[in-house]
Simulated assay, not measured.
Amino acid sequence: MAKKQQSELTTAEKKKQQKRDLILESAKVVFSKKGLIDATMKDIIEECGISRGGIYLYFRSVDEIFLAVLEQRSKRKFDDVREMIMEQVPFETILNKYFSDHRKRLLHSISDGMLRAVYEYYYTHKTEASSSLQQAQLSETKRTIHEIFQVGVQQGVLKDENLAVIAENYMFVIEGLGILALTGHITEQTIDDQIAVMRQLLPYRN
Rank of each mutant, 00 (worst) to 15 (best):
H125E: 04
S51M: 09
I85G: 03
L163R: 02
M198S: 07
L133Q: 08
Q6W: 02
V89S: 06
H125Q: 11
S26M: 04
K4L: 13
A68G: 06
A39F: 11
I148N: 04
K159L: 12
S100M: 09
K159E: 14
S109D: 11
K159H: 13
E64M: 06
V173T: 13
I94A: 01
H125K: 15
K75P: 00
Q72G: 05
N96F: 10
I37W: 03
V81C: 05
Q154L: 07
L70W: 03
A136C: 06
V157N: 02
Y170A: 03
Q135W: 07
M198H: 05
H146C: 08
A12R: 13
I37V: 15
N162D: 15
Q150I: 07
E175K: 10
T10A: 12
R52M: 11
D112L: 06
S100C: 02
E120W: 05
V151M: 03
R76I: 10
G152E: 06
T40N: 05
F31H: 04
N169D: 10
I179C: 01
A129C: 01
S61K: 09
R205S: 08
Q134A: 11
T190M: 15
G178I: 01
Q150W: 04
F99K: 08
T127P: 07
S139G: 07
I174Q: 01
Y121L: 06
R116W: 10
S100Q: 13
V30S: 04
Y204G: 01
H185V: 05
S7F: 08
Q154T: 04
Y121K: 07
V30W: 03
A12Q: 12
E25C: 02
L70G: 00
E8K: 13
G53N: 11
M1L: 02
S74T: 12
L106R: 03
V173H: 06
I179V: 14
Y121E: 01
Y121F: 15
E71P: 02
Q135F: 09
T11V: 13
L202G: 03
E168A: 12
I148F: 02
E8R: 14
N96W: 00
L9A: 11
E147R: 08
Q17Y: 00
Y58V: 06
T93W: 01
E13K: 15
E46P: 00
H185C: 11
L182I: 00
D112G: 09
L9I: 09
D21G: 07
C48L: 10
C48H: 08
L133C: 07
R199P: 01
T10E: 14
D79Y: 10
P203R: 00
K42I: 12
